[in-house]
Amino acid sequence: MPDTRDSLEAEFGVMACRAQIRIWGLDDAAAQDAIAAGIAEARRIEYKYSRYRSDSIVSRINAAAGSGARIEVDEETAGLLDFAAQLHVQSEGRFDISSGVLRRVWNFREPRLPAAGEIAALLPLVGWQQVQWLRPHIALPRAGMELDFGGFGKEYAADRVATVLQDAGARGGYVNLGGDIRVLGPDAEGQPWRFGIQHPRRAEEVIAVLALAQGALATSGDYERYFEIDGRRYCHLLDPRSGWPVQDYQSISVLAPLCLVAGALSSIAMLSGAQAPAFLQSQHAAFLAVDQAGRLQHQGV
């Protein structure tokens, strides 16, 4: 008789990241089916919200920018747009899913600072407040504007995969999509899983270990894509209001009940600069932050 206390683990690639699922509570065949369904769910979200697929909902919205056309979106997309709108308000404009156009001048493959004029020319295309969003219709008023769900797509997928696995009967385990982790429940002995938090300056090392039996953990850092000029690091986390990278923290990890929330809070905290701890406290979030001097700050962990 199969022991459902055994756990099954799968590693795979999705959204250009390494991903991992580990579950227990099902017999082998059911666990494999559940994992296959989980991977399929992650791929579904990847395709649906990819900027690189011309038939994705995001590409259709972006293609209609400036044309006056309103695009009708499905229920799931509408929910995410509502969430994005909330993030924009609560972050005072720091979290903005229309800021992706700044990538046109910030190319992290080569160390080059954009000229002031280049950023100024793009800033009019950035700003959720300009977006005409009236459920279920959306329109981008200016040609060249773009929406990008990359700011929370992976975290949303981690939560959705977790839901699929739990609906399939998994009793514990976790989902890790490129470092964004959602826990389904403790291991078969009732013990929490132990998650290392990556060292922001040394990729092979961890700075701390957190034991989690439920909830989610997401980390945002300045080490994902960046370049350095004259000892200053310019990372991919751009403040949409100025068009310039943030420079106050090396990384911020946040614990929350949902990965979507942990991810949004860690991103907004990074974008909040020196106010990151105050912001996270206002959101009642447990966090672990590494400031530019490499000092550790934490609350609730």
Binding site: G13, R18, N176, G178, F195, G196, G221, Y223, S251
Partner: peptide, 22 residues
């Protein structure tokens, strides 16, 4: 001493590669 890592994502170099390990 830890099960898995949390970190900002790294791009997967094997763009055209797919692999699964159970």
């Amino acid at each position: 001493y830890y099960t898995t890592k949390s970190g900002a994502s790294h791009m997967d170099d094997l763009r055209t590669a797919g692999d699964v390990k159970l």
